[in-house]
Write a protein that binds this DNA or RNA. Structure first.
Lengths: 386, 386
DNA sequence: ATGAAAGCGCTAACAA
DNA sequence: TTGTTAGCGCTTTCAT
């Protein structure tokens, strides 16, 4: 027989909970009446199960030991009262939150949402939860989000940093004991693990392929703003992934005998209008540009449309390659050749790195390069005779 | 002159922090040596600023009052020590976390990532933070994630529920005082606010449009599994959005004189292979199917490719409409007409609803319908003579 | 304007 | 195996 008195008491409590909605006064008949969160605590469960708080906590928290009978009694009481553990309190005591903080540039970008999936899956498998935030590719928001996550006391941080010149907030995080792994982008000035694509190699590989098809005047379209490209070399480019691609592009062009490859970099591809404008000017250029590289799939999509609406035939008139294997690249006609970035794996590896750090690894920062291969589809053809 | 002693002390501390990396022993010269998180606390700041804990907490927490001079002293000390507030402790005391929990079906789906963006923006504007989780469209994971969020003591929940027959976990959340708003899908059995698209109307509108073009034999492709469609009516369909679209589809078909519209519903469109198979059988049917509706943009993308690879010309041979204005629909050739679901707005409105509840609103659950309009592009044409 | 002390819900010694 | 007692870092009366 179950202890009937408890059942009755429970019903009473539940009714009260419903009556007052917030549950703030659910224990109105309890002289202490202190609860501000309105939730059932270990103390409540302990009382109902007629054991000490510590004992109840042990079985509820799954640590320490307890006899089968008390274990049962506590669990029953917990179930009846609708006990929900308070992870905040638990974290306070243990000093561990089991939370991983993530800051991506743009969650709407398939590149990142796929990476986030990789992070979530890997983290969950390790018993960690994930908080995802967005920087909108601005340092201000990035800094703010890092602050929010640090105040939430995340165990570690995975960040796709917006600007390699701004590392103080991440440096501070590391210094205070919160490991950081950067995603897709490496920060030379930061002693942190980094998981990136092999962007330089990928760019060179694409260029070689194009050059094999007779292309020389190849354009590169990027969201980068003008000013950062002013400097002689590419040192000013604030995102390593972009910089490495550009370096690969420039080196390969130069080796193929292009005198001024920098002039074939088209910047400010930040929205549809800009991109249509870029494509228009790009098509005017003489000697004729015979191939175009898009720095990411968002840009690529608009470049493709601009090209199509300008009546350009791919690949007869012009060859085209985009970074990232987005959905649209297989639906486009012709289907678009892409540099496949396995971003799910980026996320998974980054999380694994972070977990190693959480387990105490203090080895030198590791800079991981994930191989990216060129998926050839229908958008690369021979350079038209010029 | 700054108090030099503090500066020196600070350096000392900082050096130690770096030496020991975790910072766990940073106050090794402090006899208490109790810190397990390794972070600077209000007590540390108070001591450095030579004020009481309460005073330091007041200025650091931005509540209560303090004289300009102490305010300054405290802030300086905090900056020098690298104080980072502990939101866990803060939440413990105040009983409020300022966190919104979100459970979506699939973060990789642009539909949801856009909604998530709407949620994040709106939440942040209200000073709330967001935890995003994934159910992978399974009830088990949905339940688990709701549990995680509840234990994290989120202030409220926004959920895209996977199965309208499983509401106990959400019911429990509401009963214990955590408001819930469902996104994209309504749960008849749950007394919660819901923000959905006007799916029934949208389906009827698309159908009317198609019928105006002479179409009668119109197919509907959905990820729904067979069994749930067994019942006579559509009552068994576990996702309201899908159900409403199907109802609209069936009603409109019937009104146009189609005897058995249910037979034009093609189920199990869960992956590329299945969808190519579905399209193959769909094309065999006689009388000939002249138009196809895809239940979402993931399905739509594969249907479009299957159609294309089968050599079907759109819209001459067949008209095609997909739900959701995904990227690929404008890149496809012809561009695809879509039912535009402003999911950013779905997310924003859902968050607004939730915030109203957090502010104490106890009005009856509101079921919001966001209008969805048909964006006509190039994939709808006259039905070919049959 | 400032300080002392209690407490949020939990875990973690230490005893019994 | 179980209970007692201190905290975790913060907020919040209540005095001063």
């Amino acid at each position: 027989m179950r202890p009937v008195s408890i059942d009755v008491f429970v019903r009473n409590v539940l009714i009260r909970v419903n009556d007052f909605v917030t549950g703030a006064e659910k224990r109105a008949d309890d002289p202490r009446m202190k609860s501000n969160t309105g939730s059932v605590t270990v103390a409540d469960v302990a009382r109902a199960a007629k054991v000490s708080k510590a004992t109840a906590a042990r079985v509820l928290g799954g640590y320490g030991v307890a006899s089968e009978s008390t274990r049962e009694a506590v669990n029953r009481a917990a179930a009846q009262l609708g006990y929900v553990a308070n992870d905040l309190a638990r974290s306070m005591s243990t000093g561990r939150t089991g939370l991983i903080g993530v800051v991506v540039g743009d969650i709407e970008n398939a590149f990142f949402s796929k990476a986030v999936r990789g992070i979530s899956d890997t983290a969950r498998a390790a018993g960690l939860n994930v908080i995802i935030t967005n920087s909108s590719e601005t340092v201000e928001q990035e800094r703010e989000m890092v602050g929010v996550l640090l105040r939430q006391r995340v165990a570690g941080l995975i960040v796709a940093p917006t600007d390699s010149r701004v590392v103080d907030h991440l440096q501070a995080a590391i210094a205070s004991g919160t490991p950081v792994v950067t995603l897709d982008r490496d920060l030379a000035a930061l002693d942190a693990d980094a998981v990136c694509g092999a962007d330089y190699d990928a760019a060179r590989h694409v260029m070689r392929r194009l050059q094999d098809h007779g292309h020389r005047e190849i354009a590169y379209v990027t969201a980068l703003t003008d000013p950062v490209l002013q400097s002689d070399d590419l040192g000013g480019v604030p995102i390593s992934a972009v910089r490495e691609r550009l370096r690969g592009f420039v080196d390969a062009s130069r080796e193929a005998g292009v005198a001024q490859p920098e002039q074939l970099i088209f910047t400010n591809a930040v929205n549809e209008d800009r991109i249509f404008g870029i494509v228009a000017t790009l098509l005017q250029r003489r000697p004729r540009i015979t191939a175009v590289l898009a720095s990411d799939s968002i840009i690529g999509a608009d470049v493709f449309r601009a090209l199509a609406s300008a009546g350009i035939r791919i690949p007869q008139d012009l060859s085209f390659v985009s970074w990232f294997d987005a959905d649209w690249t297989r639906i486009a006609s012709p289907s678009v050749s892409v540099v496949d970035q396995p971003t799910y794996r980026f996320g998974a590896r980054a999380t694994e790195c972070l977990i190693e750090r959480l387990n105490g690894s203090t080895s030198a920062p590791r800079k991981l390069q994930i191989a990216t291969n060129l998926i050839e589809r229908g958008s690369i053809g021979a350079a038209p005779g010029n």
